[in-house]
Amino acid sequence: MTDRAFSVVRAGALTTVQDLGRPGHAHLGVPRAGALDAPAHRLANRLVGNPGSAATLETTLTGCAVRVRTATTAAVTGAPCPVTVDGRPAPWGAPVRVPAGAVLDAGPATHGLRSYLAFAGGITTEPVLGSRAADLLSGLGPDPLAEDAVLPLGTPHGPPSTADAVPHPGPVAELLLPFLPGPRDDWFTDAGLRTLVTGRFRVSPAGNRIGLHTEGPPLERARPGELPSEGMPLGALQVPPNGLPVLFLHDHPTTGGYPVIGVVPERFLAPAAQAAPGTAVRFVRMR
């Protein structure tokens, strides 16, 4: 193995290797996977001179810490968190020089859920179907980080970016989810559709990379039962029998039989990756 690598000192609650995922395999039952907060993932890469497709670490709530074997440039974006190098404070949202043998620690998120750690050269675990992303539904890609695991890094691509001024995102009081109705909005009553846009929903703690679950008033159905399994898009608002919409995120199953009342376009999904349990959710009909 190359010398360019890091070992995991503190794995955190759930830290996975992510890139832009493996689209184009849904017909084989393979989820797309990839960074849930794609803009934060791309930004972290840009800060260390990587292309957006390079693999980063996606943390969950508690961050993670790694010891690099050779000096490298790293950057932490996404959920704001305290960043240290061998215990000394380092900037969030900026390139950070990490000396050989030093520990880069991305601490617990001060708000939001998922931070992204990019390293110059990117994480170079073996790609599966063209992607290094960990897919937690089907188990493709690298396992979630475990203490003492060693992950290889690639050769740096170019100089780290200095131009980006990274705004520190403030806490989000309410997650706005614009959606287009359908394809199965006719499986709900008018009252059910109204509940979706007027009801007070919150992010449930049951969520994961597969879907953001909600708590709130159940949506009234116009017809019972299930559909024959059909293709499911990223951003689907699928409504299981309990009547509470689940927003499909990147590790979602490629087919399903519960009706999809609406779809949140991909460009609005990044904030959902950062909405902690308890955050208020408002669904806004786009047309």
Binding site: A26, H27, P228, S229, E230, G231, M232, T255
Partner: peptide
Amino acid sequence: EIVPAARTVF
């Protein structure tokens, strides 16, 4: 993506 299923193509 082109995803055939039981009675649909997505």
